[in-house]
Write a protein that binds this DNA or RNA. Sequence first.
RNA 1: GCCUGGGUGGCGGAAUAGGUAGACGCAAGGGACUUAAAAUCCCUCGGUCCUCGCGGCUGUACGAGUUCGAUUCUCGUCCUAGGCACCA
Length: 825
Amino acid sequence: MKLYEPHEIEERRQAAWEKDQLFRVSEDGTKEKYYLLEMFPYPSGRIHMGHVRNYSIGDVIARYKRMKGFNVLHPMGWDAFGMPAENAAIERGIQPATWTHENIDYMRKQLKRLGFGYDWTREIATCDVEYYRWEQWIFLKMFERGLVYRKSSPVNYCPKCQTVLANEQVEGGACWRCSEEVIQKELTQWFFAITQYADELYDYCDRLPGWPEKVLSMQKNWIGKSYGVEVDFRLEDGSPLTIFTTRPDTLYGVTFMVLAPEHPFSGVLALGTPYEHDVHAFIDRAKAQDRSFRAETEIKKEGVFTGKYAINPLTDTKIPIYIGNFVLMGYGTGAIMSVPAHDQRDFEFAKTFDLPLIVTIVPEDGALDPAAMTEAYEADGIMVNSGTFVGMKNREAIPKIIDFIEEKGMGKGKVNFRLRDWGISRQRYWGTPIPVIYCDDCGIVPVPYEDLPVVLPLDLEIKVVGKSPLAECAEFYNVHCPKCGKPAKRETDTMDTFVESSWYFLRYTCPQYDEGPLDRKKVDYWAPVDQYIGGVEHAVLHLLYSRFFNRVLNDLGLMGAREPFKNLLTQGMVIKDGSKMSKSKGNVVDPDYLIEKYGADTARLFCLFASPPEKDLDWSDKGVEGSFRFLQRVWRLVADRAEALQGVEAYLVPEERESDYIQLAHKIHKTIKKVTEDIERFHLNTAIASIMELVNTTYKFIEMERKEKAALSLLKGAIETVIMLLFPFVPHIAEELWGQIETGGRLLGAYWPVWDEAYVKDEKVMVVVQINGKLRDSCEVERDMEEAQLKEIIFGLEKIQRYVEGTEIIKTIIVPNKLVNIVCR
RNA sequence: GCCUGGGUGGCGGAAUAGGUAGACGCAAGGGACUUAAAAUCCCUCGGUCCUCGCGGCUGUACGAGUUCGAUUCUCGUCCUAGGCACCA
């Protein structure tokens, strides 16, 4: 018998796949397409176990779908722009481009060594000019449509990364990448108008049944849609002061207003009054508190009275106007109405400043005494003190009050979003240059399409200092204005790297197309991605940006699909010793080491078997050994009798009626069914478990030592089935074993086995007997037996008789072929 | 505080539509083979009680409920992970 030598086998098989270009695909109208994609990696140097897991899952699905006859697009590429390349450049004096490409070369080899089947002719590296030139092209199209604009605003800035961060990239006041505390800085930035799509992005969350509930809820949470009304309060001089509220049912309980420090009225209301000095001192102080500080929990609510009053349009009551540090200028109108009786924040503020409470909603079965309240009543109830709305349920009153306000011209219904526009300017070098030129005379001038690409110079010296190297490269930024020809300056900021990953999955469909970003025919054949697989950490950032970008490209007429990813699978992290694998924790397992010790098939198998894809995977060295042992067991099963099986015809149905045969035949068909259905729903761990069971059953059959030809035929059928079912998981060993038994020239991987429903059902079934729901006995009977006959057998059981004796039988419940429950007293 | 998930043996995890809880694997214990070891193979393996039987009781975070029957459905409680968090 040949020994199982994974390295030799794997190298040989991989070379053959490469030679035959096995995974290369093109559009084919005769087959159903299936676009399978895993999130592409950042080329950090080497792949880690998270990648191995992600891509192993993907490879199973890709190979399975191919066996099922789909035309499977399964590409791979590199999210190649980003800061680590610059840091490496600074630390080691190596060009970011060189560093990145060396990493890509190494990691590509690693992926190939794991045996993942990609169409490498479609490989993309986002740092290649042929990729980012089309991103610049898209930028210009977006600019024409007003989807890109420039504005000065306070931005999140990471002092360590020395660049701006989008709101989504700030996690609890810290940089998402390096965890440095984020500060506020006033900068002029480019923005993508993602808020124009906020409503649609929100609503479509309900039309993505193939996405995990969790991700959709995170996206909805982030977009933060809320229905309310804008109401015009009036200053005493008649000028309007508009607020936004989601609780118009509390409008009659407003006792004061609060403005954000940045509100245009904040600086002027107190002018010339005794309050002026205090107000300005407060505003200065509040503005100095940067965003991250303001975001801290338990920040004390502070405020100052402006000395001015406004009129509540519903009640004509005069109410004082305050400025408060807790009101955000960026949401709603930057001014709020305060209802201390029904909003906890307002309640606290009112207590501090000794402001009155007016109750407008009471619990259905009680009353509220403003003087006795220790917290705001935020729940639903019945309207009181509310003009014509008294007596209504507050929920029902809300739309009526909005109608009333609109009728009287006091305001209008409004939907607000938490989502902000996406700031994409980064003061970094290793990214896509923003294709814009600033001219003293003509202002902002987009680079003409014929001048694209704006190429990122590769021969720059990267220094530590704050400024982007591009801003110091005169050859780069000194240009002539495309409009008037006068000397002008090129934009030296680059784009956020999330821009590249927002459309790479579309470019895979036509990576060499040179007349535009997308070849409409090809992209419409493949898009949308049928199955996307990646880490849940991208639930908001990457996935939301991609949904936005896909819509923009759709609106630009570049493609037909509206949503980018039909189905999404978010895989869990790889955990070891209780925490995520990381260098700092010193608990990383190196894929190279695993491949060297056990081979790629074992590494893949363990990642797939140890836990279902969505869950975190607990690393276990012993578990890896177990996977290796299983493969050796399979190897022996086949290799030990490879010669004996030569020339034997494989049967999946028993030629003999003896129970050994029948049992094995049934097991084969049941396993095919189970594995098929499990792969379809991504229960890859249980799919493997059931293949293991088939292997165990096959060994048991062998122990019977049946020598007839029929036994060999069925055995061969079982073995062929094991190999075919294993192929998507561990393709190298499967192919090798397939080659060892003579299989009539059939090609492994070309088709998926089918089960015969007749053999899925056992001829004899074990029926368990319960008495009053408690398990008492069981017996084996013919399948689909007549109820009367079954009852006769059951009640004839000695044990059951003993239990039933002396009781009154109320009823007998029969679950066919499974269970009988006798209810008695 | 709000919104999602999730709590099952010593461990990773099964149980697809309410019907035998613990598949498969790991670890552990016992045995076979061997001069010995490795490898391999076989047996045991939730808890508990006894009269050690193809025995009884109990058991899927906890407490109720629906049901002939609940890991599964409903309500409440606790714990835990993730997301959002002065968003008016």
